[in-house]
Nucleic acid binder design. Structure first.
Length: 282
DNA sequence: CACCATGTTCCTTG
DNA sequence: CCAAGGAACATGGT
């Protein structure tokens, strides 16, 4: 599962390779990924168009496709779900087992691989409505976060997963940001002080920005490996693996890297939360 | 075999 | 109205 940083790395990878390339045909290996479209729909809409800019909004990938004579430019939207990945292949390369959507291009192909099939690839930018501010933009401030949390009695960890509060935060970075801010994941969201909301806002921004930074220094290997966090494989130049960068996520029972207290794990809203009971008493 | 998993949506229950 | 819990989607790793 890609969260915001992984999707950002994915968007940069595609932006460097896809613009200018033309779609020849569309193959769909798993129908539900392209709902509500049919393979024929999708091909009719895409065939003959060239990709323009690829960008990211929250955990969505946005693909701009050039206008045709008499038609507007077309926005396509992708979501990686838990296990999706997108990459370009040479014309004669073998397709992966779980090729959900394949776009044959003027040269080579675009592959959306997704073993679990929770991802999406469709033509409805309406899914972007209602998203909260981008956490790395100027729209995301202590004030805007405090406003989004006001009145809520939900645990702050659960609240952070609501994409209307902050767009792009997922289960890993929610725990990481709360650790950095020294806040208990169980704290009622609406009861954070203004100073705590500001601290959490800064922590979210830092945690996400650092993850993008770390990911952008690693070699990309989308076609290899099977882990959903594929872009964070080890490499000679990157002794720092994904797990090693995380302070609390996945570290139940292991000593807090700041104070040595064993990290705790609990389930909130059906998702695992990790925290240090000593460092996060706020 | 059992249990876990980066996401999201829907349904039921209190 | 709100919150919480569970299930669903489907596959793979440990």
């Amino acid at each position: 599962m890609p969260e915001l940083p992984e999707v950002e790395i994915q968007a940069r990878y595609l932006q460097e390779r896809l613009p200018g390339r033309q779609v020849r045909s569309v193959q769909v290996g798993r129908g539900r990924i392209i709902r509500p479209h049919t393979p024929a729909d999708l091909e009719a809409a895409l065939a003959g168009r060239r990709f323009q800019r690829i960008s990211r909004r929250a955990k969505h990938l946005l693909f701009e496709l050039e206008a045709r004579p008499g038609q507007d430019p077309l926005p396509a939207v992708g979501h990686l779900g838990m296990t999706g990945r997108m990459y370009l292949q040479e014309p004669d390369a073998p397709l992966p087992r779980h090729a959900a959507v394949v776009l044959e291009l003027d040269r080579g192909r675009f592959v959306f691989e997704d073993p679990r099939g929770f991802g999406r690839f469709h033509l409805d930018p309406g899914v972007l409505e209602g998203l909260g501010p981008e956490p790395l933009s100027g729209d995301f401030t202590g004030e805007s976060l405090a406003r989004a949390l006001a009145g809520s009695r939900q645990p702050i960890k659960v609240r952070l997963l609501d994409q209307a509060v902050v767009a792009g935060v997922g289960n890993i970075y929610a725990s990481e940001a709360l650790f950095r801010a020294g806040l208990s994941p169980r704290r009622a969201a609406g009861r954070l002080s203004r100073a705590q909301a500001t601290r959490l806002q800064a922590a979210l921004r830092e945690v996400l920005a650092e993850a993008i930074e770390a990911g952008s220094t690693l070699p990309l290997d989308f076609a290899g490996g099977t882990d959903g966090l594929f872009y964070y494989g080890t490499s000679p130049d990157a002794p720092d693996t994904y797990e090693e960068r995380l302070q609390v996520y996945g570290r139940r029972g292991q000593p807090c890297l700041r104070c040595g207290t064993p990290i705790r794990q609990a389930v909130q809203a059906g998702r695992s939360t990790f925290w240090c009971p000593r460092c996060q008493r706020g």
